[in-house]
Simulated scan of single mutants.
Amino acid sequence: MTSNLVSADIGLADHSIWRLPGQLCALRPDATQLLDRVNEHAWRTAEPALLELMRLRVACLIGNRAGEAARSPAARTGDLSEAKINDLPAYPTSTHFSPVERECLAFAEQFVMDVSGMTTAALDVLAHQLGRTELSDFVGALYAIEFTQRLQMVAQVLLAPVVEAAAAPAPTSAVADTAKSEPHLDLPMRKVLATYQDAVVRGQALDSVTTELVRLRCARTHRCRICQTLRLADAQAAGVDETMTAKIDFYERSDLPERFKVALRITDAFITRPDSLSETVAEQARSFFSSEQLAELCLDITKWSTQKINVALGTDGADRLPTNKAGVSFFGFDDAGRVAGFWAN
């Protein structure tokens, strides 16, 4: 079976399908510009018509009505007609779809709805269809089209009433230098994605306690083994202990401060149904967090949710981590936003 991953002309891609709210870009230009690069890479490395089908299916699953109505010119190739798009909900039986497309769409549905339910058999089938070496890039591209849409939807609700949309400032020298020195077209998706993750971590607006509770909520929802084992050292120093983290699973009924509950409500909406984020919760969020903190919270959720890639690929094992008697391992980040190491105490 030949690979479905090809090099596409990015000039055909419509950047509007991944354009983020202007207010978010103005608050965090470095991270949002690097996320643009992630999306550019995704559309260059994945077959565009197939990626468009998955983007549209993801939009439907998460309630992104604007995303469903949009179309990417990069995908207007071959037999990707409106009739085929309209038949997307019936893809398992529709004659419009090839066996490869059916397998990829089924994989995308599982990835979006319950990534922890991914099976080795499903991975093997997809690897056979796409090629084993291309599988990681494919899953990374799927992550990009899913979480860019989620970020678009949630950031618009949380930030629009607070910050006027503005043109994003020019990129910092670090971002500009990275763009010049790294021809990311030749890099695997994981490395392009890593530059975005590092930029998100470099944010300083949100406190470490909120950050850790949100990170663990993502990890437990996605059932990432390694991320559930880890604890942020900065959060531990700020008072987060196992008694506190045990409350995350039933936070609404817990005695956690309301500020943390609001952050967790946003997290739940973001990673499940972003269209369910109500204006009531948004107003609560604005009463507890500044616009800069809300922008960081949104980006943090996308960063922590890259764990879905490892869960899907079955590479989320925690066996090599040094752990204490409670089975916990601590970690931290350096000034560049990269993991600085793991330790048991």
Score class of each variant (00 low, 15 high):
R57P: 03
Q129H: 14
S181M: 11
L27M: 10
A170T: 14
V200A: 00
L123N: 15
E40I: 13
S136D: 15
E82H: 03
N324M: 09
N64L: 09
A205Q: 09
G63A: 01
D275N: 07
L135T: 01
T315I: 04
N345Y: 09
P21R: 09
G337R: 03
M54A: 15
A235L: 04
T148E: 12
T243F: 14
T77R: 15
G22H: 06
G327A: 06
L256G: 01
L185G: 15
N324S: 08
R253E: 13
P99F: 08
H15Q: 12
R102M: 13
P99Y: 08
Q228F: 00
E82L: 11
Q152Y: 03
D207W: 03
D316N: 09
S173K: 08
R44D: 09
C218R: 06
Q23K: 11
E212V: 00
E68H: 04
R320C: 02
F342I: 02
R19V: 02
G67P: 02
R190H: 14
E279S: 15
T267I: 08
V240S: 05
E292P: 05
F288A: 07
Q284S: 13
H96C: 12
R37L: 04
F330V: 04
F107K: 07
A26Q: 11
Q307W: 07
A282D: 02
S16C: 06
E242L: 10
F260G: 00
C25N: 13
A194D: 00
C298R: 11
W18M: 03
W43I: 05
Y196W: 13
G337Q: 08
G140A: 03
T221Q: 13
Q129T: 07
V163D: 05
E134N: 13
A237I: 12
I301P: 10
L51P: 05
Q149D: 15
A179P: 00
S181C: 05
I309E: 14
A122N: 09
A285C: 01
V100D: 15
R76N: 14
R102A: 13
Y143F: 15
E40G: 03
R220E: 11
R57M: 12
N39F: 07
I145R: 04
